[in-house]
Every structure is written in structure tokens, then in C-alpha cells.
Design a protein around this nucleic acid. Structure first.
Lengths: 106, 106
DNA sequence: ACAAGGTACTTTGTAATGCAAGGTACTATG
DNA sequence: CATAGTACCTTGCATTACAAAGTACCTTGT
């Protein structure tokens, strides 16, 4: 059940992290799982969707500590989407908070 | 896409409204759609799930202004779940906000 | 009486997506 | 060489918001 809450926000989380700097997939998994429980099975398909979308792009970097890393970088389109989704998130979460508190609005 | 955000929170919204007093389905649709766009096709199946769950219960009341209304009332189990989900929502939304703002945590 | 519109409920099917589970392959360490 | 850690990817399932369509009742205007 809890997993349902993540829907729609995970994409924003990824865009937000990439907005601050390129990351590879495994790194994103680690960073995000500090904040909420997720696994690779969630992130890799999401990254693929975002790449198909042209929201992000990728490039390979060799590593001496293991297999090569696929770094992701946010595109201009991605930046636009990130701004939009951030707006949406804030207004949505405020609406929920308002409803939960039962301010006159409802 | 926006619809994805609602996942997991709609149930909490319904429980929260019923926590404050019994409502019939159509009334819930109207109250919630003040805050976010939803339709009957979303609420009625949800109410059915919650009833199967024993989270809520229902009773029929005749109406002079149209067809009889099916009022829903929250059960003790429902109250417990509402408290839990409310907690979850607050901690989840704060975690997202923290990630979006890029506080040291990530 | 009858059409139109609002109230109220229900069901069916579809799309989106988080996640478990399984797989590949490389490097370093014991 | 076995194990563990890093890093990637794919398949299939479960959940759930929602469009669409249908039923049935009451009120109001003509």
C-alpha cells in the first residue's frame, strides 16, 4: 500500500537530483533510498522511460571500481518538466494537507 | 500523469472526511473534487474496496430529492488506519520536500 | 403527460507504474 | 577460486485512477 504514495513523485525525485548534477543509476538508487524505500527494479525502468521521453540523456563512463557506469543528465525539456512537476507537487500536497486539517474549504 | 499523484492519498482523504462525519458517495465526490479533480468512477470502486476491508460500513437512507443515498461510516479499524496513513503521508511528504530542496540529507 | 436536467449509484475495461525476482558482468578481497 | 560489492537490465504482477456506459429516481417547465 505504501508504495502507492510514491507514484508520480519518484519521477520528480529523479529529475530533481539530476537537476543538481549528473548521476548514474545505481547512485540514484542509493540517494533516493535514503529518503524512501526503493530498489533497482523501480529506477531502471523509470530511467528508460525518461530517456525515451527525451527528458534525460545518458553517457557511459568507465570505472576502476567495477563495471562501467551509465551517467544520466537532464535535458532542457527535463528541466521544464521538473519545474512543472515541482509546482504540481507543492499545490497537490498543500491541497491534501488542507483537506486533512478540515479547514473550511471542505 | 497528474493522476498518479493521487494514488494512495485518495483513500486517506475519504477516511479523513468520514472521520469527521458520515457521507454518501456522491457527497464525497463533490467534497473531494473541490480539492482535486476526481470522478465517481474513482470513488465508488474505492468505497467498495474499503467496505470489503471493513475499514468503512454503510447504510441506506431514503431521500426526497432523488434516489436513496448510501451513507458510509468509518469503523474502528478505519480510524486506526486513518491515523496510520496520516502519519505516513506527513512523513512521506516531508521526505519529498527535503529531497526537492536538496538539504544535506541527499 | 413528457422531456430535460440534476441526483445518486454501479460496473467494465484500460493505462500507468512500483517492485519482486531473476539475470549478466566486472573488480577486489580473503 | 569463492565471495561480496558494484552496476546494469528485463519480465511479469499488483494496484488503482479514471473514462465510459448504464440504471433509476425526483423536480421543473411546457
Amino acid at each position: 500500500m505504501k508504495s502507492q504514495l510514491k507514484r508520480g513523485t519518484l519521477e520528480l525525485c529523479v529529475l530533481s537530483l539530476l537537476w543538481r548534477g549528473d548521476c548514474y543509476g545505481y547512485e540514484l538508487v542509493n540517494k533516493i533510498s535514503d529518503v524512501m524505500q526503493i530498489t533497482e527494479g523501480t529506477i531502471y525502468p523509470l530511467l528508460k522511460r525518461l530517456k525515451d521521453n527525451r527528458t534525460i540523456d545518458s553517457y557511459i563512463v568507465e570505472s576502476q571500481e567495477g563495471p562501467p557506469r551509465k551517467y544520466y543528465t537532464i535535458t532542457d525539456l527535463g528541466r521544464t518538466l521538473k519545474e512543472e512537476q515541482e509546482e504540481e507537487w507543492y499545490s497537490f500536497s498543500e491541497a491534501i494537507n488542507k483537506l486533512l486539517k478540515g479547514d473550511g474549504t471542505v
